[in-house]
């Protein structure tokens, strides 16, 4: 494993250091590194110094391993291992501990407000960090599920910009809790 340092420059001209192995968690950075056109510092005009350390923190944790969140989605079972003849139960246990630890880390890592979520989602998309994009998109979806448009607007701090006429025309789905028409 190489521990070559890469330097990333944020949109507001601040430079951050990251190990090459960690930087490879980002497809965009990986392509720049592999493309061999690395000229000391990689400028990231779409990511500011507010959010770049948070991105680097994720990359460090995942160290170029983009499949981690997929393993979690499979319940921590690595499909390749199941077909190996020498299936190692101890190894499987260690893997489960590792996945549980990662889940806990992700929970703490993802504890931030909607402003950070917005920036982090955009940064993950721009840098093609699949695992981070999945996490941020899922967090946004969880702020939408089962909520009314008004509650969603409140969650994301946005104002309705429909005209009263458009509002009138809008198909609205509301939860109906009254049992006025309960089945007989």
């Amino acid at each position: 494993m190489s521990s070559t340092k890469i330097f990333l420059k944020s949109s507001d001209d601040k430079t951050f250091e990251i190990d090459e192995t960690a930087a490879r968690a980002s497809e965009t950075l990986k392509n720049i590194i592999d493309g061999g056109c690395l000229d000391g510092v990689i400028p990231l005009p779409n990511v500011s110094s507010n959010i770049l350390p948070k991105v680097i923190e994720y990359c460090k944790k995942h160290g170029g391993d983009n499949g981690s969140s997929k393993k979690i989605a499979n319940g921590g079972v690595d499909k390749d291992k199941e077909i190996l003849p020498d299936y190692d139960e101890e190894e499987d246990k260690r893997e489960k501990v590792r996945v549980d630890e990662l889940k806990k880390w992700e929970e703490e890592y993802m504890d931030f407000d909607q402003q950070v979520l917005y920036d982090l989602m955009l940064a993950a998309n721009y840098l093609h960090i699949k695992g981070l994009l999945d996490l941020t998109v899922e967090k946004a979806a969880s702020m939408i599920r089962g909520r009314t448009p008004d509650q969603i607007r409140e969650n994301f701090n946005i104002n309705s910009d429909f005209t009263p006429e458009e509002e009138e025309e809008m198909i609205l789905i509301e939860d109906e809790w009254d049992d006025e028409w309960a089945f007989d």
Partner: peptide, 11 residues
Amino acid sequence: AAGEPHKPKDW
């Protein structure tokens, strides 16, 4: 830019 300081994010 993502994370531009002092600018409220417009979802």
